[in-house]
Amino acid sequence: MAAKPAHLITGAASGIGAIVAERLAKRGDQLWLLARNEVRAKELEDRFPDSRTLVADLSEPRRLAEVLENQDMPTRLDSLLHIAGVVDVGAVAELDSKVWNVTLAVNLAAPAELTRLLLPQVRTAQGHIIFLNSRQGLRANATWSAYAASKHGLRALADALREEEHDSGVRVTSIHPSRTATPMLQKVHRQEEKEYDATRWIRPESVATTVLTALDQSRDAEITDLTIGPGR
């Protein structure tokens, strides 16, 4: 009997990541869920009882290798799904170095380091690495400089990785949704001092469907980039 597909997901606690995890769990796939602390890991284990959890703080990418070395790790991964992210909006004149450092760490340096650490397992399965990017990773708007810079860098990471791993059979996809009705967007609206109306934005379920569409693409083709805008 073939082994169940195995997926490692960051950001599975809420929003798009939680929906992707729920859908993969319903298939009976094996889930490895990254949590930033033991409390969040317990919450994920309660929500996804058949999953395995790893504890690591993405805001400290330099410590990922040391932290994960002492935990049980998957031996193969059919996908590595980078969905976690952080955002703080504000003019360049207002954003301090702490915002820049945390944003670049979580959104760019941590996915790069986690990919480096788990690439052997993805290669073993000739698996798929998906980076949940943003429309801000294609064009930066005012007050989004730190977030957009991290996402522009994430696209560059994906593009370079795709070329490097093509011959190993590893597929790499960047997904660029516009504003999506998630807790992250609620935070943005508070920072912008704007009213939040979830019905105006893309549903997280729609983005999750796009992630699975890329993941389920037949082996004869590779979806490299997908951009998702609001419907009419």
Rank of each mutant, 00 (worst) to 15 (best):
P177E: 04
H152P: 05
V188N: 02
A12Y: 07
G153F: 10
L68W: 09
E164P: 08
R123Q: 15
V55M: 05
M73I: 03
E195N: 07
A148T: 05
I19Y: 08
L157T: 03
A125G: 06
E66K: 12
T75H: 09
N70G: 02
L24C: 06
I223P: 06
S150H: 05
S218A: 15
P120S: 06
Q71S: 04
A142F: 15
P49M: 01
F131A: 09
L108S: 11
D216V: 02
R116D: 13
D225C: 08
P204Q: 03
L95I: 09
R40T: 05
T227Y: 04
L226M: 15
A13V: 01
D50R: 00
V172G: 07
S97R: 07
I175L: 12
G15T: 09
S14E: 15
I83R: 02
T210E: 14
V211E: 07
E113D: 11
R116N: 14
D216K: 02
A91V: 01
V39H: 13
P177V: 00
A6V: 11
L114C: 10
G169D: 05
V20H: 08
R27L: 03
R40Y: 03
W201R: 00
S218Q: 15
R47I: 00
K151H: 06
S14H: 15
A140S: 15
R155Q: 12
